[in-house]
Design a protein around this nucleic acid. Sequence first.
DNA 1: AACTCCATGTAACATGTTACATGATTCG
DNA 2: CGAATCATGTAACATGTTACATGGAGTT
Lengths: 188, 188
Amino acid sequence: MSLRHALLAALAQGEASGYELAKRFDVGVANFWSATPQQLYRDLERLEQDGLVSARVVEQTRRPNKRVFELTAEGRDELRAFGARPAKPPAMRDEFLVKLQAVDPGEPGAIIAAAAERIGRSREKLAGYDQMRERMLSGRDEDEYLRESEQVGPYLTLMAGRMYEQMNIRWATTVIETLTNRQATASG
Amino acid sequence: MSLRHALLAALAQGEASGYELAKRFDVGVANFWSATPQQLYRDLERLEQDGLVSARVVEQTRRPNKRVFELTAEGRDELRAFGARPAKPPAMRDEFLVKLQAVDPGEPGAIIAAAAERIGRSREKLAGYDQMRERMLSGRDEDEYLRESEQVGPYLTLMAGRMYEQMNIRWATTVIETLTNRQATASG
DNA sequence: AACTCCATGTAACATGTTACATGATTCG
DNA sequence: CGAATCATGTAACATGTTACATGGAGTT
């Protein structure tokens, strides 16, 4: 698939260093794509070789120097062309669902704990997204923002992330309820 | 990550051939993991070499023979062990979100069309899931089913898939509304 | 003194994708 | 008669993950 284009899209919001991008992709501000830092460094290298981004070293006194990447005109063109091509269907890889699918009816303990952890993670992500949202809106209400702002893309993808985490919390809650009820009843 | 375990979990529901599994993974009955047929054939091969599944050839007269795979005792053990280990956070790869993130404010046409297509795909998947659900419930209501049936895992993962597609439809609808409104207003 | 954050990378390995190949049968 | 379905695979290539390495600055 195409981390390359996800990187170009991220850089369309403004220049950034590999490290900064890594945080976004890892922590999940870019909630629609995941990647490890190593992948980013490698692909940024390639994007630069292909002339889609340009790098420049920013010297820092109290911290290690960093390489800041920026879209080139070619990069912008490629991003535009990518936007016009049909999108592949989304791909999911969710280990927890695999575990749940095959959960042993006798021992749901581990799964219940995992579901609780998942709710915790989702709440954290949601809190992060909500903060971001406040920062984007900065006082205005949603309708106003959606009419006025230049770029609505980042807001709409953020909403996708929020809805996803909200759904997760609701869903995982019913999973816990279901499994604990069955444990209590124990009418096997 | 681990397609291997997704395969073991799928086979925990009963034996199947590579082709049958491929359909499930491709079409998305296994909505929590995606894989191409080639990957399945390769990984089934390895699982067999590792003794986690066993294969036997079923001769067919009017169709090509098929190899039907079944979990071994070792496979079941591995699946149980896997269930007890902590799960990795879910990974998403969504090209449409990448495109939307960087959508050109001037030309949202392609994105609006893509959003409409996505709604269509989600509706189809949802219809498939709903059918599956009817088949699972077979007359009973949900509460009854969740108390009585041996295996609740497949039902709960199916619910995750349904909720995900429902969310997609709602979200993509607001995306279309937002982008068309801005296009109409054209107050840039 | 130990730990986390900043910042970047190499190398080895594991997974996932695409293109190609085969061949009978059933459906329209 | 052409397309779709059943059924399995090989080979080449692209992506993604894990382990390891470095080193100063700030924090507990």
